[in-house]
């Protein structure tokens, strides 16, 4: 693996995380509990689409085949997507989506804070733009976890359910592969070990304040670093890529 190939895969993983989570959040459009929350969640989806666009455009340049961000989003098969499994899981109820947003936005907050210092100027610039948005996503998710966790008996139950059922997907966030090792040596990639300890401390503090129990580390799901996904990604891509597959090169 060359440095360029490693960087290509690194950008795909980050871009796919943003793209697929954006897709899931956009499914809340017209379905959120209140109009204001509908706007908030879909705004987050748009933030993430912007981030995906920046990362996939950059990946397209690295690939050397003149691929665009659209090529990478709409013309790639499931096994070539590297998004974390947690991002493709169905939304479930509102508390379930909020649990995922807490896990991912807290991860992204520490991850992109580190990425600001990347030796790769483009990645550092993307991080600088996106960190402001992520800070807000994290604050929003944290506030809801506190409200629901420390709310009524029903909201506490639902929040705990979300926190528990998604826990097994969090181990993957800190997995590293060949690309990470190669880019770490060049100070391009983020040190996921450092991110992990900050993430754990932050999540533990939020859950404690929300009167929620911290799940125990048991079996952790894995696979996305090798492009192996849960059944849900295929369904997402079927819908997301339908137009390009049915009408190749369609524009409007």
């Amino acid at each position: 693996m060359t440095e360029q190939q490693a960087l290509y895969k690194y950008c795909l993983r980050l871009g796919d995380n943003a793209l697929i989570q954006s897709y899931r959040l956009s499914e809340w459009c017209s379905n959120a509990p209140i109009l204001e929350e509908d706007l908030a969640l879909t705004n987050f989806a748009l933030d993430m689409t912007g981030r995906a666009q920046a990362l996939l455009s950059y990946a397209g340049k690295l690939d050397g085949n003149n691929k665009t961000d659209d090529d990478l989003a709409y013309k790639r098969g499931e096994r070539d997507f590297y998004n974390l499994l947690i991002t493709e899981q169905p939304n479930g109820g509102f508390a379930h989506t909020i649990a995922r947003l807490l896990y991912t936005s807290t991860f992204e907050y520490f991850f992109y804070t580190e990425l600001l210092h990347s030796a790769d100027a483009t990645l550092a610039a993307i991080a600088a733009k996106t960190i402001k948005e992520i800070k807000y996503h994290k604050a929003h998710a944290t506030d809801w976890v506190l409200r629901l966790g420390d709310g009524t008996e029903e909201s506490h139950y639902r929040m705990q359910q979300g926190i528990d059922s998604l826990w097994m997907f969090t181990g993957e966030m800190f997995e590293t592969g060949e690309a990470d090792a190669l880019l770490r040596d060049k100070n391009i990639a983020v040190d996921l070990g450092a991110v992990k300890s900050k993430w754990q401390a932050s999540i533990a503090a939020v859950l404690a304040e929300a009167t929620l129990a911290l799940p125990k580390d048991e079996y952790m799901q894995t696979g996305s670093l090798q492009g192996v996904h849960t059944e849900y990604l295929g369904h997402i891509l079927t819908e997301m890529q339908y137009l390009q597959r049915a009408y190749p090169e369609a524009i409007w």
């Binding site: 209140i34 109009l35 204001e36 929350e37 706007l39 908030a40 705004n43 604050a139 929003h140 506030d143 409200r147």
Partner: peptide
């Protein structure tokens, strides 16, 4: 709509 000051500010920002 919001249940407290903080949520009101966030919702106003988002809206």
């Amino acid at each position: 709509h919001a249940s407290d000051k903080k949520m009101a500010l966030q919702n106003a920002r988002d809206t």
